[in-house]
């Protein structure tokens, strides 16, 4: 199992992501810099971490979505390589058009940093198969721009196709239909604002995020 964590200028959860992947898979992911023009060959899994890439200039994730490395990530995602984007990584994936919609400023204008209750809306996906359908899990959130927006037709399509992976139990940031995480049409790209990598070991006080990494990484190890 060969994985990579991408680091952009301003990423700050890249190490946490790498630690979570190594903890669950036993293999340390490669650390890839945004300015690299090509991805390492043969990647099985790519993670885009949280942070404030490029200081959130212009729009969160907008500059990072145009980094040299993103061409390779878009191509890999289109080939079916699993890609996980957390927080700023989710913003980057929407800006790169790998996922629909956009992440806007939280409706209440404030930065939210706390543990949020989520509902697993689709436990059949590559990333969520270790959860139960409808399971309630607690995952930390830390964001200012997590207010998910898409037009009604897109939201209806996402819901109808089972592409809403996670929903907030409470309306914490104004997201349309309380959406916390969405999948692409092929199911190999997941973007979510909450941070599963911050809930993987006992020292975190909560291990509800671990099943996400176990689900996707164990599935990859079996292939």
């Amino acid at each position: 199992m060969k994985s990579a964590v991408i680091t952009f200028p301003g990423s700050n959860c890249d190490r946490d992501m790498a630690v979570a992947i190594e903890l669950v898979s036993g293999n340390a992911p490669l650390r890839v810099w945004h300015g690299d023009s090509t991805l390492p060959d043969g990647l099985d899994f790519i993670a885009l971490p949280g942070g404030f890439s490029y200081g959130d200039y212009l729009r969160s994730g907008a500059m990072a979505a145009n980094s040299p490395i993103m061409r390779g990530i878009v191509a890999a995602a289109e080939r079916g390589v699993p890609v996980l984007g957390v927080c700023n990584g989710f913003q980057v994936l929407t800006e790169a058009r790998l996922l629909p919609g956009a992440l806007m400023r939280n409706a209440q204008q404030t930065f939210i940093c706390r543990t949020a209750a989520l509902k697993v809306e689709n436990a059949d996906s590559l990333f969520t198969s270790y959860y139960q359908q409808g399971q309630s899990i607690d995952i930390p959130v830390a964001h200012h721009d997590g207010n998910y927006f898409a037009d009604d037709a897109t939201l209806d399509r996402l819901e109808g196709d089972g592409r809403v992976a996670f929903r907030y139990a409470d309306a914490i940031n104004g997201s349309q239909r309380a959406i916390a995480g969405v999948l692409n049409a092929a199911g190999n790209v997941l973007g979510m604002m909450p941070h599963p990598e911050r809930a993987v070991e006992d020292a975190h006080g909560n291990t509800d995020g671990r099943a996400l990494f176990e689900g996707v990484l164990n599935a990859l190890a079996l292939t």
Binding site: E95, P100, G101, A150
Partner: peptide, 9 residues
């Protein structure tokens, strides 16, 4: 289209 605006919003 590519950078200055996000035409989703």
């Amino acid at each position: 289209e590519k950078l200055l605006a996000n035409t989703v919003i």
